[in-house]
Design a protein around this nucleic acid. Structure first.
Lengths: 246, 246
DNA sequence: CGAGGGTTTGAAGTGCATCAAATAGTGTGG
DNA sequence: CCACACTATTTGATGCACTTCAAACCCTCG
């Protein structure tokens, strides 16, 4: 086993969806896995395409989206390290329900989705974890829809920043936008211009400091008061945690 | 076994999620089930409340929603006969992730969610079906989010009507809105006034006929051209089918 | 330093929300 | 079967939020 293979196995083992899986299965998965480098803007697969493999992000950011004939696109999600995607094709006649594209130089590991099917059959705990992960995801999507319905642009941005912020620390909180503002805008369902203006408004209303992609604030309460007022969940949104399985 | 019990068992057996379950399990489920009548506007449960039972709609319409402190609400779904809800609480620490309320005189069957947990463990096929159902639902939610992003009010209404229309027949197509226009509006994320005006616009743009809750059209192509132009899925949306499990 | 993408700013337009009021529709009791 | 009460729906007028198109600015990286 090469160094890279070991690395892959380690990555796979660390994924929370596979927490209950036996080593033999994980080894098998790792054997069948492939690492793939993606250039910026490289498309990995498009929706309706036949699906044989699912993916785990190893490095970079992968945009999950769908687009209309005229090229307008709706961003479903933007994923980074240890996020899984493409696996829901198992349940959709082996067809990817969305497209995936690297937003920057990225690296993904792919594995055959057939193996997942097997593991669902063999390991009830795995099936349960996968269901739990799906349910969490549904909750997240519900929340996103809710946000689009009742929050305005500035509040959605505020919420996005809050979810990036580490809860723990006391003093100043510093948050770095993980990717282009244009990309954040598309994920939040607004135009780049709107994002820029709405962020400006958020700054004047909550006293946060913005310098490039870095946002600094004394404490989170101003921001949470501002954004979470127009949301059915209360601040730390502790009920929903992201990560794993899309 | 009384007549009502038989009726319940029949309903449960007919649910597609339970297609792979043994009769013994279904009997057990039916034994533990309860029928509940709900008045219009009666709340069945609210989000964050502890969940012991999941539900199947037997009659009427149940609104699934979340609301903010100031009472603004986001409608997640509106369910009717044979739709399941509340069952995702299994995966969320036995807490309902949304509220449920009858929009009219309704009837629901409730069953202990603990039994579902057991069945997931015992029956891999059931787990798989449930996963498939969840995946389908996720796809639906993605589509809804996409609609909010790239379709305008009239197009969303058109899409809603198309999904109600029977594909088969040739001659005129007649669609009846299944519930109040106000409720349709809230499901589509718009105000009642906007709904009314947007429906008027849809009428003038596509030549449909509207009389109360009844919509008539010569064929669906005008409508699908109008609405589906701003969507990543092509007309019959055949890839996604509703029903079962929320 | 200069090219190119990302970001901001400006000006104008559009779509939806909001508030207010009129109208249509439904169910009730007389 | 009609009149009343109440709710659902429509219509009008106005305002605001976001989009669009255009142009400037800024930052980074070769």
């Amino acid at each position: 086993m090469g160094a890279q293979d070991k690395e892959i196995l380690k990555t796979i083992k660390s994924l929370s969806v596979f927490a209950s899986s036996q080593v033999t299965f994980l080894d098998h998965l790792a054997q069948q896995s492939q690492v793939q480098k993606l250039q910026k803007a490289q498309v990995l697969f498009i929706n309706e395409q036949e699906a044989e493999r699912f993916y785990v992000v190893k490095k970079g950011w992968i945009k999950i989206f769908r687009e209309t004939l005229d090229g307008t696109q709706a961003v479903v999600d933007i994923l980074n390290e240890d996020s899984i995607f493409g696996e829901t094709a198992i349940f959709q006649d082996d067809i990817y329900p969305y497209s995936a594209e690297a937003t920057e130089l990225s690296e993904v590991i792919s594995m055959p989705i057939a193996l997942l099917k097997q593991e669902i059959d063999d390991n009830p705990k795995f099936a349960f974890d996968m269901l739990a992960s799906m349910a969490r995801f549904r909750r997240l999507q519900d929340q996103e829809l809710e946000h689009r319905t009742i929050q305005n642009a500035s509040q959605r941005i505020g919420c996005f920043i809050l979810r990036l912020a580490d809860q723990g620390s006391d003093g100043k909180t510093v948050v770095n936008l993980p990717y282009d503002k244009t990309l954040v805008a598309s994920l939040l369902g607004m135009q780049p211009e709107t994002f820029s203006r709405a962020l400006g408004k958020l700054k004047s209303e909550t006293g946060i400091t913005i310098k490039g992609a870095t946002i600094t604030m004394d404490d989170l309460s101003n921001l949470s008061n501002y954004s979470c007022a127009a949301c059915s969940s209360e601040f730390p949104c502790k009920d929903i945690q992201k990560k794993s399985v899309i």
